[in-house]
Amino acid sequence: MKAIVDAIYAGAVRPMPDDGRPTGIFKTPLAGEAEIGREGLVGDAQADRRVHGGPEKALHHFPAEHYARFAAAFTEQAAAFVPGAIGENLTTRGWTEAEVCLGDVYTFGSARLQLSQPRSPCWKIDARFGVDGLTRYVAEHGIAGWYYRVLAPGRCRAGDALELIEREPDPVTLAEYWRLRASPRADRARLQRVADSPGLAPEQRARWQQRLDWLRAQR
């Protein structure tokens, strides 16, 4: 399982148009070699470190195919839906949430990355494109992309391949993750499988376990 990274994006914190709140969603493509450290691309920045960035959200990967879905659903903003626009660090074609799994380990250039969790869409997506409802659309369809933790820092460039080198024995795809998250009647065994996934970020694992504990308490 291999995908070519079309582009690598990074950016500084800047004011959001209209309201001036700080954001790191505006990224530009990097030319030449880039360096990946333990907390992501050297030279990239996040405005709110409570919800973006850090070791468990070091790199954001977004499938380029999703932009066509945005354009079809929000036609007035269609021209704005281009790779890099949602604030991702890596863009590929051929992989979506249906193909990747929690805990997947990949090589990228000389770095080694592990898929830690899906991105949770926030208000900045609506603000970035000047439209109401895009954030909700992303969440409802489970097409927010995903985050990597960095197992081994390294160097990379656009055109390098992301190559799967390790997958858990009973993997959970991100598509299944989103289906279970949205289902009010999900089977507890399937929920436990997500919570027990070794690759899942600790904060997310705790949330799934809290949901399971609540369900057990109702019984």
Rank of each mutant, 00 (worst) to 15 (best):
residue 4 I to Q: 14
residue 7 A to H: 11
residue 8 I to H: 08
residue 11 G to L: 06
residue 11 G to K: 07
residue 11 G to C: 05
residue 12 A to Q: 06
residue 13 V to T: 14
residue 14 R to K: 15
residue 15 P to W: 03
residue 17 P to E: 12
residue 18 D to A: 13
residue 21 R to P: 00
residue 25 I to E: 03
residue 28 T to H: 04
residue 29 P to F: 01
residue 32 G to V: 02
residue 34 A to D: 01
residue 36 I to P: 09
residue 37 G to N: 06
residue 38 R to G: 09
residue 44 D to G: 04
residue 49 R to P: 07
residue 51 V to D: 00
residue 52 H to E: 03
residue 53 G to A: 07
residue 55 P to V: 05
residue 62 F to T: 06
residue 63 P to I: 00
residue 64 A to I: 04
residue 65 E to D: 13
residue 65 E to K: 09
residue 65 E to P: 10
residue 66 H to R: 12
residue 68 A to R: 14
residue 68 A to D: 14
residue 71 A to H: 03
residue 71 A to K: 07
residue 74 F to L: 03
residue 76 E to W: 04
residue 76 E to C: 07
residue 79 A to M: 01
residue 80 A to I: 00
residue 82 V to N: 00
residue 82 V to H: 08
residue 83 P to N: 08
residue 85 A to W: 06
residue 86 I to T: 06
residue 89 N to F: 00
residue 89 N to D: 01
residue 92 T to M: 05
residue 92 T to Q: 08
residue 93 R to G: 07
residue 94 G to H: 12
residue 96 T to L: 05
residue 97 E to I: 06
residue 97 E to H: 14
residue 101 C to R: 09
residue 101 C to K: 02
residue 101 C to Q: 09
residue 102 L to V: 15
residue 108 F to R: 11
residue 111 A to H: 12
residue 112 R to C: 13
residue 114 Q to N: 06
residue 119 R to T: 09
residue 123 W to F: 15
residue 125 I to N: 09
residue 125 I to F: 14
residue 126 D to I: 10
residue 129 F to K: 08
residue 131 V to K: 10
residue 134 L to E: 11
residue 134 L to Y: 10
residue 138 V to T: 14
residue 141 H to R: 12
residue 143 I to E: 09
residue 144 A to R: 02
residue 144 A to C: 05
residue 148 Y to Q: 03
residue 153 P to S: 04
residue 157 R to N: 04
residue 162 L to F: 06
residue 162 L to I: 10
residue 164 L to T: 09
residue 165 I to M: 07
residue 165 I to Q: 07
residue 167 R to Y: 12
residue 168 E to N: 05
residue 170 D to T: 14
residue 172 V to R: 00
residue 173 T to L: 01
residue 174 L to F: 14
residue 177 Y to K: 00
residue 177 Y to F: 15
residue 178 W to F: 15
residue 181 R to D: 08
residue 185 R to N: 14
residue 187 D to H: 01
residue 187 D to R: 07
residue 188 R to F: 00
residue 189 A to E: 15
residue 189 A to L: 12
residue 189 A to C: 02
residue 190 R to I: 04
residue 191 L to I: 14
residue 194 V to N: 11
residue 194 V to M: 14
residue 195 A to E: 07
residue 197 S to G: 01
residue 198 P to A: 08
residue 198 P to I: 04
residue 198 P to K: 06
residue 200 L to C: 09
residue 201 A to T: 00
residue 205 R to P: 01
residue 207 R to C: 09
residue 209 Q to A: 11
residue 213 D to Q: 10
residue 214 W to I: 03
